[in-house]
């Protein structure tokens, strides 16, 4: 048995060294936050803001990020992309008075205790609010994510879009699960 054990460890060591030489480097499938970040970009592309929101085509589309979670980190990957011709820029926000100029607000899961206050601050502003917090759309947010069978899905609250004065393409709405607001 001792021999087997030694051979065994040798085999393991061999496997390890093969790995250490860097000859194996499988690409991993996209992660849940990466896909969610890419969906945020797509949503921005299919959203129409009230006239006059962008002064010209070169005006950046500002994605404000509130707090921290895996998606907020993955959003770094959409910086510099364009939506409707506008370059996407990211801005970290920490308080409601910094909301001026935001087109999209991503509310990270670290903020789940403060969702009520954030939604109040967002009320009536032409901002597309998105979150990975379960139930966000039902409480008055515009979009929230969920997963089904390892695939990302999203909820859209049409009333919230209406209050914000945003128009989202019917193409997007067809793919979403539409929710009604739970609380008045």
């Amino acid at each position: 048995m001792a021999l087997t054990r030694r051979r065994f460890l040798l085999g393991v060591a061999g496997g390890l060294s093969a790995l250490a030489r860097g000859r194996a480097g499988p690409s991993s499938p996209p992660t849940d936050p990466e896909v969610k970040a890419a969906i945020v970009l797509n949503l921005a592309r299919f959203t129409e803001w009230p006239p006059g929101t962008f002064s010209d085509a070169g005006t950046p589309l500002v994605v404000c990020v509130w707090g921290e979670d895996p998606v907020s980190h993955a959003l770094g990957g959409i910086r510099g992309e364009t939506a409707g011709g506008h370059p996407v820029v990211l801005r970290a926000v920490a308080s409601p008075d910094r909301l001026q100029g935001c087109h999209v607000a991503y509310v990270a899961r670290s903020e789940r205790r403060h969702v009520a206050g954030i939604l109040t601050a967002l009320r009536g502003r032409p901002v597309l609010s998105v979150s990975d917090i379960e139930g966000f759309a039902a409480w008055g947010g515009a979009v929230s994510f969920w997963t089904l069978g390892g695939r990302v899905r999203f909820d859209v609250n049409p009333a919230a879009l209406r209050h914000a004065g945003l128009k989202v393409s019917s193409k997007v709405l067809r793919l979403a699960r539409l929710v009604e607001e739970a609380a008045p």
Binding site: P30, D32, P33, E34, V35, N42, P70, R151, V152
Partner: peptide, 9 residues
């Protein structure tokens, strides 16, 4: 994107 099987973090 909605068809991608994601690795759940």
């Amino acid at each position: 994107l909605m068809g991608v099987q994601v690795t759940t973090v």
